[in-house]
Design a protein around this nucleic acid. Structure first.
Lengths: 325, 325
DNA sequence: ATGAAAGCGCTAACAA
DNA sequence: TTGTTAGCGCTTTCAT
């Protein structure tokens, strides 16, 4: 054998099948205007020669790669791997490869990701943009089919998939109330563009902004935030956290004061990350179906790629009651 | 303004800078044979026109994209996001985009990922291949610069980065011994190509394979595996698990029998996923620096891309003693 | 140090 | 229904 490394091109297939290269192109791209017999013969030849079209050449003509971008703040934050898994599965089912851009919710990094996406000629993009302003996001949406997660559409061309934070928050607060907790506090995540949870909480507690303390949405942030909350309001018996990481930190901080979540003080988290069910006490939290969110993001993007107008979907959260509240 | 959407090409830059297009190409690719003055002028023009070279056109010539592939079994398994984060950061520093392929450790999916990687003309690939045989892996390594993680090199051209499972296992077992546990059991993960932990454990316990039970490397798998182990060897007081997920399952299963890990029975996990430190009791486990593993994989791939021969690195694990053992 | 020519592999537009 | 023509934007010879 000789040419193990020479590329099989569309011309080789055309020659072998005894047709023109355009006909080969038609056969593989399911274009019309081709007889069933020719199509079959060409496809068989493709198989036989193990021909794989060049993504570069194709992209050069179409200006579009078979790739979608996934922009997220931090893959190491347990919320995102679950979403990413849904994105990967749904994208693979559509034959799309996924390029991941990790931004740390930094505006510069998000902008840079946008540039890279456009430069790469991605077929579309899915993004958790937490820092980029609407104007920049709208501009990106004009250059590439875009679906944004958990954020309002910055432009009519941009599709959205959102989880209903307001309902989730009410679910959490109503649960705390039903357990007799009327002195509530909230640990808010210091995250831009995510005011819904805080707002809904404030509605419930009657607007007392003093009952909300803010910190980084991490376990360490939760430890510190709970201490600040308790210093300010020692009488608090119910705590609602922006996410599970903060809630876990709160549970830990309580433990150091000799209190156990679910007994003296109730703690409700948000997201229902895998860890939540495994803790002791297991965390009561607002569950959002992260895998489904990922799948939906791809589905909405796919419909956009198929020429449909931008859609807007909302996923419903539900409360999972465990030991901590 | 008119042409917001027409692409700025290398010819536009050449015209504006008053040079030929190869000169532009030379300037941006840092090739020699160009005067400093021209180079600067061209670069300034590029900046001014906001010219971005077409990845497709470039790839068509070079047959290589500015993209690396990351193949992993399951991004939702907490071990991998931490590694992925290291990969993303190091790749971004080198100006490489990362395409992620999720395989579920399925041989067919791993093979398909390999095909996709070759078709996409990836600059290189990093992979946790758990099912693909050495021949197929070697073949892939001949088509694209490849670094495999936690697996022996299938071919001299394939670079490797491994964590030293043998040492990690000995660390865990010696710790158990030092705490007086001489009746040990192991929960092995039903994972292909990962015999080191089991082997090292068997050396320690003197080859009694009966003391190893095998199950899926998940929390549920750990619950079931521990029950089987206890049914077989009720006298076991020290448990070493293939990974933290299994160990967490073991701790839970113990709890249902009224035993607490770290008191009646000692449990040691492997990996030190984020969750491990947050549990109650917190998990004693073998720590591997997952972020560093990700970074190293990219570094080794980078050196390969720079023309160096395939390297083989090993990362040292260390034991983290917490409450469970 | 610079430029001209050639062509990577594909698909859109048009012709037959 | 099929084939021909043209050209996407870049880099690699090779010539100057």
């Amino acid at each position: 054998m000789t040419g193990g490394s020479v590329r099989v091109t569309i011309d080789d297939v055309a020659r072998a099948a005894g047709v023109s290269r355009q006909t080969v192109s038609r056969a593989m791209n399911d274009k019309g205007d081709i007889s069933e017999a020719t199509r079959r013969r060409v496809l068989a030849t493709i198989e036989e020669l193990d021909y794989r079209p060049s993504a570069f050449a194709r992209g050069m003509r179409t200006q579009r790669a078979g790739t979608v971008a996934l922009v997220l703040p931090d893959i190491a934050n347990p919320f995102f791997p679950a979403v990413a898994r849904g994105v990967f599965d749904a994208a693979a089912a559509r034959g799309l490869a996924v390029v991941v851009h990790n931004t740390d919710a930094d505006a510069g990094a998000e902008a840079e990701a946008g540039r890279a996406i456009v430069d790469a000629g991605a077929a579309g993009a899915i993004g958790f943009f937490e820092a980029l302003d609407d104007a920049a996001l709208a501009a990106l949406g004009r250059r590439v089919p875009l679906v944004v997660a958990d954020r309002p559409a910055p432009d009519p061309s941009v599709a959205t998939v959102r989880t209903d934070f307001r309902t989730g928050t009410r679910l959490a607060c109503e649960h705390l109330a039903s357990r007799g907790h009327d002195r509530l506090g909230m640990l808010d995540g210091a995250v831009q563009n995510k005011p819904e949870r805080r707002r809904a909480f404030l509605e419930v507690v009657g607007g007392d902004a003093d009952r909300v303390v803010t910190g980084p949405p991490t376990v360490a942030g939760g430890v510190a935030a709970l201490r600040r909350l308790l210093a300010r309001h020692p009488d608090v018996t119910g705590v609602f956290a922006f996410n599970d990481l903060l809630a876990i930190g709160a549970v830990q901080a309580l433990r150091t004061t000799g209190r156990r979540a679910g007994e003296q003080v109730a703690v409700v988290g948000y997201d229902d990350i895998t860890m939540a069910a495994l803790l002791d006490p297991p965390l009561t939290t607002v569950h959002t179906d992260k895998y489904e969110l990922g799948r939906t993001l791809v589905e909405v993007l796919g419909r956009r790629l198929d020429g449909h107008p931008a859609e807007h979907r909302t996923l419903a959260p539900r409360l999972v009651v465990r030991g901590s509240a």
